[in-house]
Amino acid sequence: MSKQEITLSVNGATHELHVEPRTLLVTALREELGYTGANVGCETARCGACTVRVNGDAIKSCMQFAVQLDGAEIETVEGLAEDGNLAPLQAQFQAHHGLQCGFCTPGMLMTADTYLKDAENPSREEIREAIEGNLCRCTGYHNIVDAIEATLTEGAPTNE
């Protein structure tokens, strides 16, 4: 079908692009715009590897067509670090070995980063519920929960 013109703001930069209606947001980000951080791991909204922020909310970017999001503000994992410095959450993932193969990590970070904006003293069980929509096959989640918890309690790692 004919391509449609849409505008997406990605990490603050505005992009105009032509997409087929069936083009998923994640496909547009990865293949049209080169933001390959978000990954595709399933087609049934289970894995969460594609999670990005859309207008402030964590969303699975393979569960939206790009045309639906004309004018939306998208934030991806590529936007988390500032001036080449890891954000506290990213640094805690490294400090706590909260990633192994890294494929789920961009989505995991975007879910956790969004969650942290409102979270107040969550229990470990609540943190686990917050990342329920992000599968990780490598870590068993323990260290991911540690990293999120540590970001809340100490911000960036203090043991540098």
Binding site: Y35, T36, E78, L80, F93, Q94, H97, L99, G102
Partner: peptide, 21 residues
């Protein structure tokens, strides 16, 4: 020791096969 491979994985700059275009 913290892993030295983590930075590209954490920032989205790592290249997986599907990222090869």
């Amino acid at each position: 020791i913290k892993r030295n491979e983590d930075i590209p994985l954490l920032t989205g700059s790592a290249t997986y096969t599907d990222d090869v275009m």
